[in-house]
Each structure stands twice: as C-alpha cells, then as structure tokens.
Design a protein around this nucleic acid. Structure first.
Lengths: 236, 236
DNA sequence: TAGTGGTCTAGACCACAGC
DNA sequence: CTGTGGTCTAGACCACTAT
C-alpha cells in the first residue's frame, strides 16, 4: 500500500468518516459499527490503522468496544452541567426578565500566531470576531468576546444578533461535537470593565469555552460577568 | 519477541514507568524524556509499542511532543474538574504535588434559623462545622468551610482529616444522591483572605456545593480559592 | 546530515463472545 | 467453532528539527 497522498492521516480520515456517519444517523446509539476487518477492507488499509481510529473514538467516548463482540455507538451523556450551552437570552427570558444586547464589534480578521494555534489552523486563516454586551433589564450582565472559525459559519457577518444570539446561530449551523471550558475569577481590563459598567477593581467571573464541530475548532468565546451579580449554577 | 506473560500490556507498563519517573522527579517539567528508539531498546519492544504509550500520555497532557525535536514533560496546570466530586487531596496528588491541610475548626453546633432552613431540618438540630485550609506544595489553594448533617456522619468529629479529607470520609459513609452547586467570584472576608495568604482585595473563585444523601441534605460546603491561581475546568 | 516523531504495513497470537 | 477486539512486531517512508 502506498502512503496517503493527502496530508490528513488515514486514521483521521476514518475517524471523520465514522463521526459523520454517526451524525448522519447511519448508526444510532447502541448500534454496532462495522468490524475492524471490514473497515480495513473498505478503506484498503491495514487493520492497525483502523484500530487506531476506532480506539481513539473509544477513549473519546464516542464508541464502546466489547472484546469478542463488537464496537457500538455510545450513549449520549446527559450533561446538565453549568455550561449547558444555553443562550444567555433564553436564560434571561426564562427568569422573566428583558434581554437586550449591544453589538460592539463584528469583523473578519486573519488569525495571528496565537489564535491560529488555538484554532489549530494556519496563521492568516479567516476568523470572525464579535464583541457583544448582554443586558438583563438594562443592567449589563455579560460581555461576550467571540472568535469564530469562518469555515464553519460563512455568513456570520450578516447575522442580526439582536434577534438571534451568536450562540443560537452557531448551534444551528455547526452541530456541536464537544466542549472544553474553564472558569476563573479575574480582574477585568478597562475596556471590559467599562462595557459592564463596573469599576476595574471589581473582579469578574470569566467563562472560557471552546467548542468543536466537524472535527474543527468552531468557536472560542470568553464571557465576562460582573462578579458581584452573576453566578453559575447547576446540579446533577 | 514473545508476547508478555503478565496480564498488563507492555504499552501500559511503559506508561506506568514514565509516570513514575516523572513523579519521582527524574524528568522535570520541560525536560526531554528518552526517545522512542531508546525506550524501545530499553524495554526490548518494538517502536510502535513505545509510540502508543507516549502518544497516549500526550493526549492525556502529561507530555508534549515536537516532531523532529523530542518529547517533553508538560507543564502541570492548576486545574480542577468540576463535575467529578474529587477530593482535593487526590487532585493535588494526581498532579504529582504534595498535599497538606490545616484544621482551623471542628465543632458541633446547633443549627440556627438560617442553617436549619438550608438543611431542611428543625432549628437546634445538631450539625458539625469544620474549616480546613488545603495546601498544594505549601501554597494555600483552598479554604473548605463545611457544614455536615450529624445524622449522616455521626463520628465526623473524631476523624483525622490530615489523612482522610472530609470529602473522602463523607463519600464513604454517605452515598451520594445528588449535588447542587454554584460558582461565583467574590471578594473574600478578611478571615478567609488571611487563611489563603492573599490580600483581601484579590477576589476568590468560590464554589458552593450542597450534596444530598439518603433523601436528606448531607453537607453544605463553601470552597474559597485564590482567583489568580485556581480555575475550574471541564469538557464533554 | 543525523536524530526525532508521525504514520503505516502485513502479518501474528491471544482472550473473549456468541452461536 | 467463527468472528470479534487487544496487543505486538520489525520493518518502512516521511516531515520536521537541530547541528
């Protein structure tokens, strides 16, 4: 067998294929996917290559493997965690309050070194950048500083974020594959403090979130909240 | 080469070896570990087997690999997982760091009006109260202010929390039924700031958590962390 | 250029599940 | 028993880094 000519490794191609088919519904939760031998034949590669693809999807909890039996699509987990990817607008409305947002920036930019690394793309790759302030009953409650991969959301710039938040739009165009987040307490830079109408000595509760879709980084967002009037909650 | 006779796979043996050496300090953060070829020779196995061990440690963020250069011990991050109700001691040890705790208070009290309401018991109900400061490599990283329902943990007062944290003890005696939590950024009261050895102007990342067991409120805990050196992370 | 990791092969033997 | 996954080999070629 000659080595793949494209730059993407074969095992990655197979992972993508399996993910796509699962998303398409070809195999539903609990269904068995083809055996390693079958996939090896289908892709005309060695079994070890298929094994790596399937093994990695197993550690990513996409699949379950049972020795002697087969490989199955895993159950989607209930994640009622704090970062339920809920739109802030929806959250505010569910409290019976009025939601309003102000668009402070909406531009296309070329990824610099650092952003390129975070998005796992080449420097110069097109990204969208938006900064939106969300108000609950006219009180600033969140600054949403968002970077979006242009490939996954081509018409991001033409959206009307007053009627549909970036979150709501992105959920529609880029099916969510995974999320990483971290939460910290930080003293905000002055620009953020001003937008939140707080002193730059008050600390903020900051949520960083990176979402994956179609095996790419879809969006990286930093949400700044006034520490004294916001908290994350959850239960399980 | 014959297959290993022991039941543990060779790649796992190599992972264990590498983790042990890192923990021992043989290679510190940023140091290069031996090359794949060297490890293959050392363990008398094929390079692919070593590759799997090292690759998995890389996805687990224990190592960094740079093609053409080498494999290096990754930077340990101050991070906690939210979703797992993990003992802070265990978390610190899993980073290869030393955990130490100081007991500041351990008493039995009668629930006042407010506590009684939170615990859903009658005022006067017996509760235990403990305040413990946790250190990671002698740096204060958490103040754990805990209230415990005496019914579910009768011998709470006689525990040695230096060897077993309250969390570990409670997990053993009171099977977890459910959890509610909230996270906020707060300026700490002076007593807390002093225990964390920070200025009372620096904000804290605070996790409130209420756990249920046997259909009662088992424990209500407030954990204070220095905002500038602690964050919660997670992914799904 | 020599050394490193990144990937892949075409076999192999084993343990386990299900018929 | 057959078919599945679990592991391992002894090579190979490639891309990249450091010198």
């Amino acid at each position: 067998m000659t080595t793949s000519l494209s730059t993407t490794p074969v095992f990655q191609t197979i992972k993508d294929y399996l993910l796509r088919e699962i998303q398409k519904g070809t195999w539903k939760e609990g269904d068995a996917i083809p055996s390693e031998a079958a996939l090896a034949q289908q892709f005309n590669v060695s079994r070890m290559t298929v094994n790596r693809a399937v093994r990695e999807l197993t550690t990513e909890q996409i699949l379950n493997r049972i020795q002697g039996s087969g490989t199955y699509v895993a159950q989607q987990k209930y994640q009622a965690t704090l970062v339920a990817i809920k739109s802030i607008a929806e959250e505010i409305r569910s409290r019976g309050h009025e939601h309003r947002s102000e668009l402070h920036e909406l531009v296309e930019v070329e990824a610099n070194e650092q952003l390129a690394q975070q998005f796992q793309v080449q420097p110069g790759h097109a990204l969208f950048h938006s900064v939106i302030v969300h108000f609950e009953n006219d009180i600033a409650i969140q600054v949403e500083d968002r970077w979006v991969n242009s490939i996954l959301a081509q018409d991001y710039l033409t959206q009307d974020f007053a009627t549909k938040t970036p979150n709501e739009y992105l959920m529609a165009v880029a099916p969510l594959q995974g999320v990483d987040y971290s939460i910290e307490a930080v003293i905000p830079p002055k620009t953020i403090a001003d937008m939140l109408q707080i002193s730059s000595k008050e600390s903020c509760l900051v949520l960083h979130r990176k979402t994956r879709s179609q095996n790419q980084i879809a969006t990286i967002v930093t949400m700044w909240h006034p520490g004294n009037r916001y908290q994350f909650t959850g239960s399980f």
